[in-house]
Design a binder for these strands. Structure first.
Lengths: 296, 296
DNA sequence: ACGCCCGATACTGTTCGGGTATCGTCACTG
DNA sequence: CAGTGACGATACCCGAACAGTATCGGGCGT
């Protein structure tokens, strides 16, 4: 007697309607019909009387409805007690600039619901470390952006953001619908400090990893970068999804590959709590893993 | 939290050993290891400390062990209460000659265990009706043998028995290891009464459905047939698995297709209890369905 | 009598769960 | 201290299960 089937049955029993129950269960009607039929075969009893207007419960169906509700309830409590036994567990999540804004809200809510007992430390990193301290071991898991050197690190893509150039609203180029890197060739570009991950550094500088860096002032945070555009007209890139202060606007850059928000973790890490975090993130946002499958 | 995973965990927790637990669960060790890991990820907690000598429970593991046992217990009781709500249900099983001996014992035990509340009527049919009254509506499901006309009837093969010829032990042919139909061409053969399913009638008469029937006395039961061999030396066929009275022996017939023990039911029948019976039969003996899938 | 709504079915693509083979590691032993 | 054996983990493969899309059939309402 699969608990999932019981959840399905409870939904149908309460809605008295396969279609509505399917919506509530975030699935479509046919697999739900089949699942209930399977449950009936498993129990050897008709649970529902089907009609053209909906369904009604048989005697056995009513009995199962009560049993299922209490059983699901008990399962929920059992889970809570088990995870409570592991109370005191902590994990440290590193976030990078806007990545937390983009995915943090939904993810935090889902994670809290699943693991209410766990203490989560948040560590906000500046723009100079795309791993947010993951490689240095300061965090267990990172919500960050590509591209960066991921040797020894596995990632799972949560979303993909096209990248744009940030301009003052009174900049002549600000009125264009789309720009190309060559349109900005004669500007001064921001750059990240030496020692920053080369892939990362080149990407936000608008160059290739092997190419020469464009010249310009060094920044360490997104804030510094934006203020620089505002005050000096230097060029900075951001994901288009990023919110901008007044006086600034962003224009899509057609020849830049998108930056992806990813959850990242050390390849070697097998801590179930970390794996659960990744699992939940992946479940909320589709996406694909790289480097390894997160479920194993 | 899948109940199946909890069953797995309980086994491992009690055996303190993946390998032994796997044996107990009738599976192999690798999928069991992965299943437990999945459970750990689901709960976000390490449940077992692995070592070279076996496993020990962590705090969370101990908690889960207790919770899992009570939860599984409650699920079992819930199932019992639901099926009890459908008390008074009856089903009629038709059996044919030896089919019940071959598969009845294990099947009856498994079915009783699953549906203790159900009244099962047994109806033993004679050798003249391979459907044991299924087509006539006198039984809900039949344990019988192929071949017979299965239009409107679905079957699932439970086992396959080579067929042999029954001979008196003093018959010259009785010492042969194997016989062919041509060896018996000059003998008198039993036949089933007119009106009996033609496929069936021809099969046991050792002829093809379109061919001429071999001549011989008419019998209605296996017993009559065997006594005829004993007293008159007429030829009769039986599955080799069939037990024979003293004075008779059976020799494999190489050019007869095997007879299969099947569970058979009306194609239109959707009663979950019948489906459950078929399901249980299929689960015990592998085999394949014909006419339709029994799970839908 | 006809149209519409509801559940059932057919068919398809992907995922999941289990199997076999093999690895890495630790404990014990000679 | 090196060899050996036992245990759990991993890699890889395959079949079954599951969810999705499209469509059917049947009863109820107008």
């Amino acid at each position: 007697m699969d608990l999932r089937l019981l959840r399905y049955f409870v939904a149908v029993a309460e809605e008295r309607h396969f279609g509505r129950a399917a919506v509530r269960l975030h699935m479509t009607q046919p697999p739900l019909s089949r699942a209930i039929k399977r449950l009936e075969i498993d129990l050897g009893t008709v649970l529902l009387r089907r009609s053209a207007t909906g369904v009604t419960l048989t005697v056995a169906g009513t009995a199962l409805y009560d049993e299922a509700r209490t059983l699901l309830e008990q399962a929920e409590q059992a889970r809570a007690r088990v995870t409570a036994a592991a109370r005191g567990a902590t994990m440290t999540v590193g976030t990078l600039a806007d990545s937390a804004e983009q995915v943090g809200t939904r993810l935090a809510a889902a994670f809290r619901r699943r693991h209410p007992e766990v203490h989560v430390h948040i560590r906000e990193a500046d723009f100079t470390d795309p791993t947010t301290g993951l490689r240095a071991g300061r965090v267990d898991v990172a919500l960050t952006r590509t591209p960066f050197d991921d040797t020894g690190i596995s990632t799972h893509v949560l979303r993909s953001d096209p990248v744009g150039v940030v301009l003052r609203t009174d900049d002549p180029l600000a009125r264009r619908d789309v720009l190309y890197l060559r349109d900005l060739a004669d500007r001064r570009w921001f750059q990240l400090p030496e020692g920053t991950d080369p892939l990362w550094r080149a990407y936000w500088n608008g160059t290739t990893p092997t190419g020469e860096l464009r010249d310009g002032p060094v920044v360490r945070t997104v804030h510094e970068c934006l203020q620089g555009v505002l005050w000096n007209g230097t060029i900075g890139l951001t994901p288009l999804a990023h919110a901008l202060p007044n006086g600034l606007t962003s224009v899509p850059l057609a020849d830049m590959p998108p930056s992806r928000v990813v959850v990242a973790w050390k390849k070697a890490n097998t801590d179930p709590l970390i794996r659960s975090f990744i699992h939940i993130a992946a479940a909320i946002y589709g996406g694909q893993s790289e480097g390894e499958e997160f479920t194993t």
